[in-house]
Design a protein around this nucleic acid. Structure first.
Lengths: 216, 216
DNA sequence: AAAGGAACATACTACCGGGTATGTTGTCAA
DNA sequence: TTGACAACATACCCGGTAGTATGTTCCTTT
């Protein structure tokens, strides 16, 4: 009983740290965030964090992984559903955009993690960790790419280079990451409207006809 | 003669520093870039840079301003032309996207500058400088917004909230900033094709009919 | 109840990077 | 020719930060 309570609170502590870290990394960026910042936002000190994570990079990577895991959990059931391509594409796009808003801090860390790899991650171990996370992210994008190609074959979507089309679609769906502020109008209604407009824009961009998008 | 030569080389030196700084800031981000990095990439030392710029922030802001100036120079003549709305919108969008690719390093700094302001810029003076630059950027976006609203009134474009539509359009046009690599296929042909696809995607997203986009 | 360890806090080190103070060299004007 | 200044390079200072080493407290297990 006490053991399970301890374990549960142990997990809770980890999640608290991840959440605080995600927020700090979003607010100031990876390089400009100090471990002390994260600890202070928890009302704690370094010791707390270094007890659970080996380094600043390790903490950041955990945030990255956690964010990607949430994305997979949200999208995989939709991708594996038996809906037709159109329905699948619309659902996945909308769900992804909603996830970007709802888990903004984590997804901003994912974004910066991608940039960290594009640049030169310092140590080789960090590079290895980033490469693995990047592979996770590529797998996620691959789910969308497959649906996209199928939509193109069905004549629903039209685009030239599929890699660029994928990038552009994600740019639209991810867009709220960069300008959405959680404090102003963060009721579900508003959030849904924002995600809708982003999704419609993305699907239009992919060449979907207006009547196929109307109810998004 | 020698005086003008000195002045000219003086300007050249400034531009060299700005270019090197833009590249470094793009490669590693503002916080992770040291003045020594910039100096080293110039085959020089700190002294060279601090002789021309008062601080790291000042250097960064100069890169920001220089990048925005290039954007204005490219877009203003188009916005002031007597073309109809459709032609104006297409030209401006395509030109902007091309500029993002061609002056990538500077535009990445503009992007990060916007983020720096959204976050809390340290000193008040830095904040003031960033606010002024942000105003410059808002003025630039305003040029596009006006054309957009006109296009909507003409029934050419369709969207809900114009602020979000503007964001989404820029996200698409700016997209190459984040995945384009200058080293691979950087011939004009390829660059033009990329900008085209981004522009088509953006215009579609804004609700333009297919026949109005065909020749972009 | 005693020992061992989990879960931290505190105190410290080492280094890096922004900024400055000072030295050096070439150029130009009087 | 000389002094003054531009255009740097060199040497140095110092604050901040990642990481570590060492307490301290409480809980759990036997």
């Amino acid at each position: 009983m006490t053991a399970s309570a301890t374990m549960a609170s142990g997990r809770q502590v980890q999640e608290d740290i991840l959440r605080a870290a995600a927020q700090c990394f979003m607010d100031r960026g990876y390089a400009a965030t100090s471990i002390d910042d994260v600890a202070r936002s928890l009302g704690a000190t370094k010791g707390r964090i270094y007890h659970h994570y080996r380094s600043k990079a390790d903490l950041f990577f955990s945030v990255y992984r956690y964010g990607m895991q949430m994305n997979f959990d949200a999208i995989r059931p939709l991708a594996e559903s038996s809906s037709d391509v159109l329905e699948k594409l619309r659902n996945m796009a909308k769900t992804h955009s909603l996830a970007m808003i709802r888990t903004q801090a984590f997804q901003r860390c994912v974004w910066e993690g991608v940039e960290l790899l594009q640049r030169g991650a310092t140590t080789p171990e960090q590079r290895d960790a980033l490469v693995e996370l990047q592979a996770m992210r590529d797998d996620y994008a691959e789910i969308f790419r497959i649906v996209l190609e199928e939509a193109k074959l069905d004549g629903i979507a039209q685009y030239q280079r599929s890699s660029i089309a994928l990038q552009l679609m994600f740019m639209c769906l991810n867009s709220p990451l960069f300008w959405f502020r959680a404090d102003d109008g963060s009721d579900d209604e508003t959030v849904d409207r924002i995600a809708s407009q982003c999704t419609v824009f993305a699907l239009r961009g992919l060449g979907l006809k207006e009547e196929l998008i109307a109810d998004v």
